[in-house]
Design a protein around this nucleic acid. Structure first.
Lengths: 263, 263
DNA sequence: CGATGTGAATTACTTCACAGCC
DNA sequence: GGCTGTGAAGTAATTCACATCG
């Protein structure tokens, strides 16, 4: 999972609920909603935990931070729990969202079904390309970046999604923040710097793959499983030696870095 | 960020490097590569940490798990560190990857620049829609799901990306695993169950937004900032009361759940 | 002197195990 | 009897602070 935070020192959980617990609430909510749709009235911590992919002790501990919503000897009332978690997550409100950067990814996000439900509403799509302006994506007309501030203000938007190329991300971020946005979901492969009080979460495909590669590499040593093709890589001439000696720009063992998003 | 794991009990770090550290290595690598491109020869823990968005103590501790690659009084040799981290992450190998589910999102992923670099190579695009078969996306012809096993075997693929609708994800996952894949990056909003030894990481847009909403809700109480539109939500009639009493299916405070991906 | 590398202290998170209540 | 709720124990991650060395 790729994520990022930005809070008061990390301690001082926003009202006693640990970050790790908050991150799991949406998981529980999804599992509960599925049960709700099947009209299942109650569920035990064991069952729900299994559906959410965690262990039951963790789930019970998580719920204990919200309050005592279960019934001993029985389990949890599905509908009631759905409501309590929704409320805790702030999903009983309407959250207008703007997506900036309507390339491949931005379009995918705009079309994402999970967006519409659960209180999130795509209030506007924004792109710097004048060619796109006016064209509808997922039924919503794309607007030009010039309108950004106006759009945010008029719709009372407080959550922004950045799906631009890496190069444009910080600039877009600054404008979003200046316009009043206080939560950002960033898909561009860059570290965004934001003022105190603004939350940033990051989703980074490349990072996730690299983490998988790390573990995959370990496995290779153990089992003679599907072995990836070896590739020649000149071990770089440099031990942590003389240091300040600037080596010629024939560049290290790697070629380029990505950094550019689909846009 | 949305992520997921699947390992030996969580303890037993794969050779001494903590999970949390592994998750940050790609961040360092990106920052270092940017420095490398600007031909910066050395960097201090302070500078690099700032570029990667972490604090310097954490960065030094992280690097200490890899070895002593710095020079006291000076800092780290950029090129050398790029190589060491790349090697540690397994990026000096070639990793063929298949993407299953070429909808909006799958296409965005196929076009993602960050894929091609850093050792990841899109070996194939796979979709269940016969209409798509043969059509090129990002220059790569889409192949039909029937070919899945053959493609994985012939290309020695060990990493699979699932970008299908939620309903198809588990089934696709099972086939990938049966075909020999041992690492999965899952974009579908479902909990995948996999056998021991298979790694799953999850990227879930909806979850990230919900976490943002949680924190956003907190802020609203403090500063009179951009307030989201209140929406009427009938507080559910049920206290954690009688429990087993199945309430009428007039459903809870929420309408539907998403669960369906762009496809 | 200046910046790394790292034990020790702190804080966060998870898991255990069982008392308490329906 | 069965399952929740939670202190206590255990484990992981972060931060501190300083000895160490180029």
């Amino acid at each position: 999972m790729a994520t990022g935070r930005n809070h008061r020192p990390a301690t001082s959980r926003s009202r006693g609920i640990p970050e790790a617990t908050v991150a799991r609430l949406p998981l529980y909510l999804r599992a509960l909603t599925a049960l709700s749709e099947r009209s299942v009235p109650t569920v035990s911590s064991e069952e729900l935990a299994s559906a959410a992919g965690v262990n039951s002790a963790k789930l019970r501990k998580d719920f204990s931070y919200l309050g005592s919503y279960g019934t001993r000897g029985v389990g949890y009332d599905v509908e009631y729990l759905v409501y309590q978690i929704s409320r805790e997550l702030g999903l009983t409100q309407d959250w207008p969202v703007v997506i900036v950067g309507i390339g491949n990814l931005g379009a995918a996000l705009a079309n994402y079904g999970g967006f519409a439900s659960r209180g999130f509403r795509v209030a506007a799509l924004i792109d710097a390309d004048p060619q796109l302006a006016g064209k509808p994506v997922a039924g919503i007309p794309v607007q030009h970046t010039d309108e950004l501030e106006k759009i945010v203000a008029e719709n009372g938007v407080s959550i922004g999604v950045i799906a631009t190329p890496a190069g444009a991300a910080q600039q877009v971020c600054d404008r979003l923040v200046a316009a009043g946005i206080t939560s950002i979901l960033n898909f561009a492969p860059t570290v965004l710097s934001v003022p105190e009080g603004v939350d940033v979460r990051k989703v980074d495909l490349s990072i996730e793959l690299q983490i998988l590669a790390f573990h995959e590499q370990r496995k290779a040593g153990e089992e003679p499983a599907t072995a990836p093709a070896e590739v020649d890589t000149a071990p770089p001439a440099a031990p942590p030696a003389v240091a300040v000696t600037k080596r010629p720009p024939e560049s290290g063992p790697d070629g380029d870095l990505p950094a550019v998003m689909p846009a």
